[in-house]
């Protein structure tokens, strides 16, 4: 539970506080803010890994800018979506990938 989000009310950037959204991640409800990426939402929820490699190792975000493809998830049935690039939408069904060998 090491990553976390700076609460908006103490953020010097004074961000607008948008409505919340909720997604299902492997069947569990995760809440977040509109405009967050799926990776941002998972990290803000304290989770730092969600994909498993073919050799069974956990991965999450590495590059954060869409280059490393470590953070891939399946979104609404579509595999290999970069969680750091995709904004979360209310009701998204996210499935974690890997660990299949």
């Amino acid at each position: 539970m090491t990553p976390r989000m700076l609460p908006g009310d103490i953020d010097p950037a004074e961000p607008a506080i948008p409505p919340t959204v909720a997604v299902q991640v492997d069947g569990c409800r995760v809440e977040g803010l509109q405009g967050q990426t799926l990776a941002g939402m998972l990290l803000a929820a304290g989770r730092d890994s969600w994909r498993r490699t073919r050799r069974g190792h956990d991965r999450g975000v590495f590059c954060g800018i869409g280059v490393c493809f470590d953070c891939l998830v399946t979104v609404n049935g579509v595999p290999d979506v970069r969680a750091c690039q995709r904004r979360a939408h209310d009701g998204d069904i996210v499935e974690l990938q890997g660990g299949d060998e």
Partner: peptide, 18 residues
């Protein structure tokens, strides 16, 4: 993380990676 990840997550998500 790469340095860029820490930076992007801080600026774009207001998330601290640790």
């Amino acid at each position: 993380y790469s340095g860029g990840a820490a930076q992007a997550l801080a600026k774009g998500e207001r998330v601290a990676v640790g």
